Simulated assay, not measured.
Amino acid sequence: MSGYGCEDMSGGQEEIWVLFQGSTRPEFQYFPDNVQGPGCVVDPSEVTLPGCSCTSHSCSPESCSCLQTHGQSYDAVGKLLTVHRANSAHCSPVFECNALCSCSDSCSNRVVQRGLRLRLEVFSTQDRGWGVRTLEGIPQGTFVCEYAGEVIGYLEARRRQLAQTSKDNNYIIAVREHAGTGSITETFVDPAKVGNVGRFLNHSCSPNLFMIPVRTHSLVPQLALFAAQDIGANEELTFDYSGGCSDQSPMQKDDVFKDKWTDGYQRKVCHCGATNCMKLLPLDFSILS
Score class of each variant (00 low, 15 high):
residue 5 G to K: 07
residue 5 G to P: 09
residue 7 E to H: 13
residue 9 M to R: 14
residue 15 E to G: 15
residue 15 E to R: 13
residue 16 I to R: 11
residue 16 I to L: 13
residue 16 I to W: 08
residue 16 I to C: 09
residue 18 V to G: 08
residue 19 L to P: 00
residue 19 L to G: 08
residue 22 G to K: 08
residue 26 P to M: 09
residue 28 F to T: 01
residue 32 P to A: 02
residue 34 N to F: 00
residue 35 V to M: 06
residue 36 Q to M: 12
residue 38 P to L: 05
residue 38 P to D: 08
residue 44 P to E: 00
residue 50 P to M: 04
residue 56 S to F: 04
residue 56 S to W: 04
residue 64 C to I: 03
residue 64 C to H: 06
residue 75 D to C: 06
residue 79 K to L: 15
residue 80 L to F: 08
residue 82 T to A: 07
residue 83 V to D: 02
residue 84 H to G: 09
residue 84 H to E: 12
residue 86 A to C: 15
residue 89 A to R: 02
residue 89 A to P: 02
residue 90 H to F: 13
residue 90 H to I: 11
residue 93 P to K: 02
residue 94 V to A: 01
residue 94 V to C: 00
residue 102 S to C: 14
residue 102 S to M: 12
residue 102 S to V: 05
residue 105 D to Q: 14
residue 105 D to H: 10
residue 107 C to M: 08
residue 107 C to L: 07
residue 111 V to F: 06
residue 112 V to E: 00
residue 115 G to V: 03
residue 118 L to Y: 03
residue 118 L to I: 08
residue 119 R to Y: 12
residue 121 E to S: 10
residue 121 E to L: 07
residue 124 S to F: 07
residue 125 T to H: 08
residue 126 Q to T: 12
residue 131 G to E: 12
residue 131 G to D: 10
residue 134 T to M: 11
residue 135 L to P: 09
residue 137 G to T: 10
residue 137 G to E: 10
residue 139 P to A: 15
residue 141 G to H: 05
residue 141 G to S: 09
residue 142 T to M: 04
residue 143 F to V: 03
residue 143 F to M: 07
residue 144 V to P: 07
residue 146 E to S: 13
residue 148 A to Y: 03
residue 150 E to S: 10
residue 155 L to C: 11
residue 155 L to F: 12
residue 160 R to T: 05
residue 161 Q to Y: 06
residue 169 N to E: 13
residue 169 N to W: 12
residue 170 N to Q: 07
residue 173 I to P: 00
residue 178 H to T: 13
residue 178 H to M: 11
residue 182 G to Y: 02
residue 191 P to C: 05
residue 191 P to Q: 02
residue 199 R to V: 00
residue 200 F to A: 05
residue 201 L to N: 06
residue 203 H to K: 04
residue 211 M to Q: 05
residue 211 M to C: 10
residue 214 V to D: 02
residue 214 V to G: 00
residue 217 H to T: 01
residue 217 H to V: 00
residue 217 H to P: 01
residue 221 P to N: 03
residue 226 F to L: 06
residue 228 A to E: 00
residue 229 Q to V: 07
residue 232 G to F: 10
residue 233 A to S: 15
residue 237 L to C: 01
residue 238 T to Q: 01
residue 238 T to M: 05
residue 238 T to G: 04
residue 239 F to M: 00
residue 241 Y to L: 04
residue 242 S to M: 01
residue 244 G to M: 06
residue 246 S to I: 07
residue 248 Q to W: 09
residue 249 S to P: 10
residue 253 K to A: 04
residue 254 D to E: 08
residue 258 K to T: 13
residue 259 D to S: 13
residue 262 T to M: 11
residue 267 R to G: 15
residue 268 K to M: 10
residue 270 C to V: 11
residue 271 H to T: 13
residue 272 C to P: 11
residue 273 G to I: 13
residue 275 T to E: 15
residue 275 T to Q: 14
residue 276 N to A: 15
residue 279 K to G: 05
residue 281 L to N: 09
